[in-house]
Write a protein that binds this DNA or RNA. Sequence first.
DNA 1: CATGAATGAGGGTTCATTCAT
DNA 2: CATGAATGAACCCTCATTCAT
Lengths: 207, 207, 207, 207
Amino acid sequence: MGSTERRQREKEQRREQILDTARSLLFKKGIDATSMNQIARNAELSVGTLYLYFKNKESLFAALQEEGLTLLCDKIKEESEKGLTPREKLEKVALAYLDFSEEHRKYSDIINYFLTSPEMVFPPPLKSRVDKHVNRILSVVEDILKKGVSKDADDREIRRLTVVFCSSLHGMLQFKKLRSTVLQGEDFRDLYMYSFDCIVRSCLFKG
Amino acid sequence: MGSTERRQREKEQRREQILDTARSLLFKKGIDATSMNQIARNAELSVGTLYLYFKNKESLFAALQEEGLTLLCDKIKEESEKGLTPREKLEKVALAYLDFSEEHRKYSDIINYFLTSPEMVFPPPLKSRVDKHVNRILSVVEDILKKGVSKDADDREIRRLTVVFCSSLHGMLQFKKLRSTVLQGEDFRDLYMYSFDCIVRSCLFKG
Amino acid sequence: MGSTERRQREKEQRREQILDTARSLLFKKGIDATSMNQIARNAELSVGTLYLYFKNKESLFAALQEEGLTLLCDKIKEESEKGLTPREKLEKVALAYLDFSEEHRKYSDIINYFLTSPEMVFPPPLKSRVDKHVNRILSVVEDILKKGVSKDADDREIRRLTVVFCSSLHGMLQFKKLRSTVLQGEDFRDLYMYSFDCIVRSCLFKG
Amino acid sequence: MGSTERRQREKEQRREQILDTARSLLFKKGIDATSMNQIARNAELSVGTLYLYFKNKESLFAALQEEGLTLLCDKIKEESEKGLTPREKLEKVALAYLDFSEEHRKYSDIINYFLTSPEMVFPPPLKSRVDKHVNRILSVVEDILKKGVSKDADDREIRRLTVVFCSSLHGMLQFKKLRSTVLQGEDFRDLYMYSFDCIVRSCLFKG
DNA sequence: CATGAATGAGGGTTCATTCAT
DNA sequence: CATGAATGAACCCTCATTCAT
């Protein structure tokens, strides 16, 4: 009978329950200030149980990071499809990235955290899994550019423009940290879209 | 005689010795995994001595960051002056930033580290001092753009272009981490300068 | 079966074990010279365990003080009931206090320690909990005086006499420290009861 | 010539300078929060110099304690002489003690601190020197009682009454710590003098 | 005499992880 | 499976004291 199935379902639920609590704490207090004991307490589970579902703290947070990347990727794809012309699609992508970084600030933080930390934080297998997510995102942009850029750009150039596009937006997003000092007096969203315009303009769009 | 001078010099040396060790450990393990005790041990000093030269852990790392930013700023200024036309000057700036990130990889890492870290690591006064350095760098670029951009751009727009220029390069530099996975098959320097071209092109340069 | 009960009992025992060790060290070295690490080492437990049973050092020592005050209070109440007349009852109280300070020298020391220490050691909430114990003791004396003092003393005066009675005994007990120098040649118990007589005499007892 | 004298005077001044600073810090922050480095810094001397004048921290604070005891003793003597009758003299003594504990709160604290700490804080020679001060104070009271108490009290009894008198006041002063909780609603000075009256009354004064 | 840089043990506290139940 | 008490190394930081100058 479905006893094993139920068991399976329950296990899945427990895992989610843990991730939910961890996420919530991560968002509230940051990664270093979130302890396994706290997660256990908030999840109304014992510490031991946490280690039944995740090898260690790192794995638990890695799971959250993947969660975030998947969310971001889905959002970007979904939004891009709402645009009619390539330019509009790109604009949707750019806005999706900005919105994500605001709506899911903490996901965004944790992604950046692991992505840009000076040394590889995760062991190679994890790192490569993460980079795959990044690649998926780039592909979305690449496909749009393929259709929007003037004909004489070959695949190589398209790829480069993709990277330029994404890295520029990414760079601008990083600068958001400076908004209270260096960027004083600027509306960040305006600035971000201004940057978007510059990049798109330079991509020699058809028409 | 020069006894006091020698003392002074020795103190300076100790400070450097501490910073050297801290820098090296920070790059190896990240800020949270680098403890004051470790630094002391590696520097072959006692913990107490560390606190003789730096108020606390935070100050020590802030000193490292300022060190790096000052170096970067000087380099950028110096290089920019070697260019004749505004475009050439900008190119020098871009290359200076890239070179710095390669020659002073460690400094570059630490700057990024703090710029990107999920939570504000430093308390406001420190943060603002650091941001001042960033501002100094932006000013160099701003001055160049003022002279190179087509006449109808007002100060506001110049400032925006400055931020676009800098953040784009910064973003691309961040992507360097992906060179072994996502950017496979690309020469990073080429890609970086390709990005530079795109941005400059979009800045509507005179002539 | 009684597995949970046994667990509970064991926890209780551990707590006692910690308190025993802390008490002993506190008396030997004073509160500031007694460290959590020392307590842990002497109790043959890990530091972490200490913090499992007590929120922090302060709580641990507060527990000791409350322990002592409760004991003292119970003893005083119990003894006072053995006296027939109010005067006898008061005598029992005085002797109970003296005996306690001898039999439970350590508890007595810790109570004095906190009562006399130059700065408020405990934060208000804790302090007020402790003072409640003191108040309970005063109440016992107050009730006796109410019945023993000549009629024309109102509640206010009774209260004052209560404080005079208790503080006098307390003061004399403090002087015990001087028995080898200043009080040389005196039997302390005699002196203490001599003091008791003086105070009682001054309370204008009925009859 | 007076060169050595001058030297001597300078040394004396330095000592005072150190004690002044230590006292001031002690009063501001308490004994444990006052470090040798702080004292040195505030006194505009080097740490090393402190150790030239005092064997260690303990000695330094012991000097302060003696200072306090001498002050208290002098004050009591001086005040007692202002009274005309024995009773008045005793009242002056009592008030002098209370005033001292208020005006020189911190001296009073430090005296109590060392006097009542559970174990001997100072090595025997120091302890005995301190107790001598205490004895001097008792003697003042003893002399007054000799003249004030009814004839049939022998020296032994006078001594006992002296101790009762002093310890009672001392005990009441200890209770001052409870004024915000247990003694709520009482004016402490009134209470203290009420206590004084009780004791004196019980001493069977002549006339 | 005076200095003050250097020491390093020790302070209270946290926390990822384990393992007997 | 689930528990949670126990661990103990590690954290940052302080401070009395020493000693070469």
